[in-house]
Design a protein around this nucleic acid. Structure first.
Lengths: 351, 351
DNA sequence: ATGAAAGCGCTAACAA
DNA sequence: TTGTTAGCGCTTTCAT
């Protein structure tokens, strides 16, 4: 801002300073050609002396690689995505890549805009949690140059590498835990229908119940938004039922906060009067009263694996798409009341 | 990935397709020169027909602007920074800029690396929460081309625009609240000494106490890490004091979780046995038991303002540096026990 | 082992 | 009003 060196230092300046050709400077920077030790040393000294940094525009123009990747998610503010982003960023950083971030707020238009931006502009690759109706975009869009990895929703059918979680087992395990504690009427709050995580978790719920010979009561399944107010409303609806459920399972971690509030309004205690569990572990889950029993998703790991997949894809563009399924972890704390039933179950951790 | 059009479409292709010169195509894309409606229309059609996207490397090489900005923060996973990043991203998006993110983990070396990366590589501007000892870097580094905005720590002395919070008033108000509730021995957990937020909050603490004629007891001030375990240890140290404090105030929101755990280990109840308050409001603060009384920082707003400052700076590089101070908000809930003292104080909100 | 020079795709000054 | 062209800074082929 202040001391401004009118023109920035180019490879030419370095070449002149070291009294060599620009080709030689380029060679030592890229270490891709033999340069005699003396010259190399001289060049390095000139680089240091001038504080030369190569211009990535020129480099990119020539090589067509930007050394940056993008991540498109609904909202970085949601801890689920925050951790994924962190995982991605760490891997990108290790590869000397930079990470461009885009929040879509589940708006297909915003998503589309980012897709274009990233494609035209810079990214070599892209990690994306697609918005519901946008799948077709992905194949329609001219994203040929872009390596793509999907997260949270399976994109494998579109020939795109994907990292997601084993939702069926995750949900089933949690419901079985509740069943084991004697619950028979288990309310379920889902996110948007039709997307993989919701449908798969629904399967897990159904499987667990059927295994115990319990009929599915549609009244116990309510769809709501994966937000605090969604949880509030969902719980309201479920708790207003004539034949009130004794346990509530939520597909999203933020919902449980709303549920907790509704429960308080009903004058109910958790877990004594009603058991609560949800997907997503988060920092505060273990310090809330009651400590929350949750199905933890390896969020950081999802990001990490997705980034690994992406960088592998960047190497060999060819090869069949791969899908990685990560396992969830049932973390039993207090909100289902296992302590009430059998003290020795406390803090048992289930794979 | 699949259908790959071997060579991507360039401005030349569009020019040929529309039977005009490249200059005309450029003119219609940039809307910076008069082009007759007919030609303009023809060009637009060709652009659409070919799905042309301009190559930002070439554009950047020519114009030296990248249309992307960076944000360098300790850790995106910390809700304080997450929200800031979201604020920045929203503004960047509105300006059609992309946002590159870098986590430093408070490691000056990583910070330095990002600085170089962003400078050489792309960013037109940069928002940064500096690591403690790195201030000198900022002026030493050849970041002349980069517009800079500092957050959380004041960089105004370095001639850099800054957005931060009124830490003195924030801390003072909270301590006065505690004082008003009758507390006389108030333990304080600080973050690293020597950085503005810590020192300023310390001033607020001191001012409040002195105003009430209470001497500062150095034993009540402990420095610890702004993390859960930091809070755990800090509380341990404070609660082990012979003359135990009746209230604890923490400079960081994550500390309070650790403090809560330590309190439980001591068999103490909050707020009955000990009052608790901290900086930083977060989603769960209002659903935790007890509901946490906190000094909320307008995190999203910090990011937004910082981005605004940055874009303004991008327009007029000249002009004196500006510092924006945002106000904190004391959010009184339960953890200080105001309910215990006077029921009508509950959920009072103090500016 | 080193250097000269072409050219990546775009913008903008200048010419027509 | 539209077109021609130089040149941004780098990589890389081809000469030497």
């Amino acid at each position: 801002m202040a001391i401004s060196a009118d023109r920035s230092i180019t490879i030419k300046d370095v070449a002149a300073h070291a009294a060599v050709s620009v080709a030689t400077v380029s060679a030592v920077m890229n270490e891709n050609k033999y340069v005699s030790p003396e010259l190399a040393q001289r060049v390095r000294e000139s680089i240091a002396a001038l504080g030369y940094q190569r211009n990535s525009f020129a480099r990119g123009l020539k090589t067509q690689v930007s050394h940056s990747i993008g991540i498109i998610i609904p909202d970085i503010t949601n801890p689920f995505y925050t951790n994924i982003a962190r995982g991605v960023e760490d891997v990108a950083h290790a590869h000397n890549y930079s990470l461009i971030i885009g929040n879509t707020d589940e708006d297909p238009e915003k998503e589309n805009k980012y897709l274009q931006l990233l494609e035209s502009k810079q990214a070599d690759g892209l990690i994306i949690a697609v918005t519901d109706r946008s799948h077709e975009y992905l194949q329609a869009l001219p994203i040929q140059k872009l390596a793509l990895v999907g997260i949270d929703r399976s994109l494998i059918d579109l020939g795109i590498d994907t990292v997601m979680v084993d939702n069926i087992v995750g949900a089933r395990t949690a419901i079985e835990h509740l069943l084991g504690l004697g619950h028979r009427r288990i309310g379920l709050m889902t996110g948007a229908r039709g997307i993989a995580p919701t449908e798969e978790r629904l399967i897990g719920y159904t499987e667990a119940l059927e295994k115990h010979g319990i009929a599915i009561d549609p009244a116990l399944i309510v769809m709501t938004r994966p937000r605090i107010d969604g949880g509030e409303q969902g719980a309201l609806q479920l708790l207003s039922l004539e034949d009130r459920p004794t346990a509530l399972f939520m597909m999203d971690g933020t919902m449980i906060i709303g549920a907790l509030q509704t429960i308080a309004k009903f004058g109910l205690r958790c877990p004594e009067d009603i058991a609560l569990a949800c997907f997503d572990d988060f920092t505060w889950a273990s310090v809330m009263r009651p400590h929350l029993t949750v199905v933890g998703q390896p969020t950081y790991e999802i990001g990490k694996q997705a980034a690994h997949l992406l960088f592998e894809r960047l190497q060999h563009l060819e090869g069949p798409p791969r899908e990685i399924r990560l396992q969830t972890r049932l973390i039993v704390r207090e909100s289902c009341g296992s302590r009430l039933h059998s003290p020795d179950l406390i803090s048992q951790i289930h794979a």
